[in-house]
Computed example of a mutant assay.
Amino acid sequence: MNHLIPRFQPENLEHNKCVFERVQKIATEKGCSPSQLALAWVHHQGDDVCPIPGTTKIVNFNQNVGALSVSLTPDEIKELEGIAAGDAVKGDRYADMKTTWLWADTPPVSSWKAT
């Protein structure tokens, strides 16, 4: 499926890999994972912002909670904001959304039952 996602196309992949490597470097310096760093960055946006990551596995939940232990300096926040600027990542996040139904696993409406 990645071959259909514009961000993973050859013309975008090398650039986006460099963006990830910058985030990975900061995460390594902070002693956390890139996902924990991302959650910590969201958490540091203010008292009126709360990241709500989804997960179905306890190990991932525990890792997400670990993001609360990651503190960021104003300089680190500024650096991450620069990395996450609107045009930093090349390529759309999803391919043509008109075809997502092709991979859907939704039962037909005729099988739905009202409760």
Rank of each mutant, 00 (worst) to 15 (best):
47 D>K: 14
47 D>P: 09
47 D>A: 11
48 D>P: 07
48 D>V: 14
48 D>S: 10
50 C>F: 12
51 P>Q: 08
51 P>N: 05
51 P>C: 05
51 P>L: 08
52 I>F: 09
54 G>L: 06
54 G>R: 00
56 T>M: 04
57 K>I: 02
57 K>L: 03
58 I>R: 07
59 V>Y: 14
59 V>L: 10
59 V>E: 15
59 V>S: 14
59 V>C: 07
60 N>L: 04
61 F>C: 04
63 Q>S: 15
63 Q>A: 13
64 N>C: 04
64 N>P: 04
64 N>W: 07
65 V>T: 12
66 G>M: 03
66 G>H: 01
67 A>H: 01
67 A>P: 02
68 L>Q: 12
69 S>R: 13
70 V>Y: 00
71 S>F: 02
71 S>Q: 13
72 L>G: 10
73 T>S: 12
73 T>R: 02
74 P>Y: 02
74 P>N: 08
75 D>C: 11
75 D>T: 01
75 D>N: 07
76 E>R: 01
77 I>V: 13
77 I>R: 00
78 K>W: 00
79 E>A: 06
79 E>Y: 10
80 L>D: 06
81 E>D: 11
81 E>T: 09
83 I>V: 07
84 A>N: 14
84 A>D: 15
84 A>S: 15
84 A>C: 11
84 A>P: 05
84 A>V: 04
85 A>N: 05
86 G>R: 09
86 G>H: 06
87 D>S: 15
87 D>F: 07
87 D>E: 08
88 A>Y: 04
89 V>M: 10
89 V>T: 07
89 V>G: 00
89 V>W: 12
90 K>P: 00
90 K>S: 10
91 G>Y: 09
91 G>W: 09
91 G>V: 12
91 G>T: 09
91 G>C: 02
91 G>N: 02
93 R>C: 10
94 Y>E: 05
94 Y>Q: 08
95 A>E: 07
95 A>R: 05
95 A>Y: 08
95 A>N: 09
96 D>N: 15
96 D>V: 06
97 M>H: 08
97 M>I: 13
97 M>L: 11
98 K>T: 04
98 K>P: 03
98 K>S: 14
99 T>N: 13
99 T>M: 13
99 T>Y: 13
100 T>A: 08
100 T>H: 14
100 T>M: 15
101 W>F: 12
103 W>G: 09
104 A>M: 15
106 T>I: 12
106 T>S: 15
106 T>Y: 08
106 T>H: 09
107 P>R: 06
